[in-house]
């Protein structure tokens, strides 16, 4: 009798779970070049989540310049998670609207950056302008394509990479500023996002060199052919650590906190790291990194903390109103 009662209860419980299996929708607000990566990743996560909970999860994607995307979230875009180009763009979600806690970056391993990348040069096949290092970008007659640091996270990495290269080589902040100013004198088109710059360089045939995310450059080779472009890895570049977080205020309101957290944690899983590497992001996972070691050239990388004391300081000095970029670009 007891066994029968228990069976009925279990059946009822199972029925309850079956009845509560429900479709869930997340919105991932990300930066420009992650489109292809998250298409593959979202499909894998949906499969993982279905197997784990029985729920169908759909992840909608929104892409654009990292700074612009952050402003959209501040303006009310209901992002469950943000996966932006730099922590400074995520910080504003706390600073301006308290959408996330101040310590958001400590909630996941590696400062909440599940993958890294760096900044490289994409040039036309045969490298007709002989571009090998940052110095070559200031030469007369070299047309450079890079996005606007005011709106693009990738552009800020580009900017800081060039700045730190010059500061190390020429020995002072003033000379670094002068160097970056010379690069921007060679910039013909200032797109709002990294994908726009890729379009300018690859599809509009403008410029001699595109300063690009490494994964975006690889993607250009894959999409448009190694017979048209080649990647030049400068001897020194910056370690870009695009971070991720849930947007606490939104997930609490929508009741998606659990699935949103799982979504970001899945980025650190073997599957997530494998997909990142396949999409030309440098994985954090050692085993996956070893497997894809041949894909990514060895290069001397410096971090934002080492070179600039973190994103907050870098932003204030270079990208805030009146910062070095304004001084350079107004000129």
């Amino acid at each position: 009798m007891k066994l029968k009662t228990m069976a009925i209860l279990l059946a009822a419980l199972a029925g309850t779970f079956a009845a509560t299996a429900k479709p869930v929708q997340l919105l991932n607000v990300s930066y420009d070049p992650t489109r292809e990566f998250y298409v593959e990743f979202n499909a894998a996560f949906a499969k993982f989540w279905k197997a784990r909970t029985g729920d169908d999860v759909t992840v909608k994607q929104s892409h654009g310049g990292s700074g612009k995307q952050a402003r959209s979230v501040l303006d009310g875009l209901q992002a469950d998670v943000v996966t932006l180009a730099l922590s400074g763009d995520i910080d504003v979600l706390h600073d301006n609207a308290k959408l996330i806690p101040r310590d958001w970056q400590t909630r996941l391993p590696n400062n909440s950056s599940p993958y890294t990348s760096t900044i490289v040069f994409l040039v036309r096949k045969g490298n007709p302008k002989g571009i090998k290092d940052w110095d070559d970008l200031v030469r007369a007659g070299v047309s450079v394509v890079t996005p606007n640091p005011k709106t693009s996270g990738g552009a800020r990495w580009n900017y800081l990479a060039a700045w730190e290269f010059a500061r190390r080589k020429y020995g002072s902040e003033d000379k670094a500023k002068d160097f970056v100013a010379h690069i921007f004198k060679n910039v013909a088109v200032l797109d709002t996002g990294a994908r726009g710059s890729t379009t300018t360089f690859v599809q509009r045939d403008i410029g001699d060199v595109l300063i690009s995310w490494e994964n975006e450059a690889f993607l250009a080779l894959k999409e448009f052919g190694k017979d048209r472009f080649e990647i030049v890895m400068p001897p020194v570049s910056i370690l870009a650590e695009p971070p991720v977080t849930i947007v606490d205020r939104v997930v609490k309101k929508k009741g998606t906190e659990v699935v949103a957290k799982a979504y970001l944690e899945f980025l650190y899983s073997d599957t997530g790291q494998e997909i990142a590497a396949r999409n030309f992001y440098r994985p954090r996972n050692e085993a996956v990194a070893t497997k894809y070691a041949s894909t990514f050239a060895k290069v001397q990388l410096f971090t934002i903390d080492e070179a600039f004391g973190g994103w907050a300081k870098a932003h204030q000095a270079h990208f805030a109103d009146g910062g070095s970029f304004d001084q350079i670009y107004v000129k």
Binding site: A188, V189, L190, T192, G196, T200, R204, D205, I206
Partner: peptide, 17 residues
């Protein structure tokens, strides 16, 4: 040709903006 392309692209970006 480059100048023309740059002008066209900049106009396109201005239109988008």
């Amino acid at each position: 040709d480059q100048k023309l392309r740059v002008l066209e692209r900049n106009q396109q970006l201005r239109d988008e903006a």
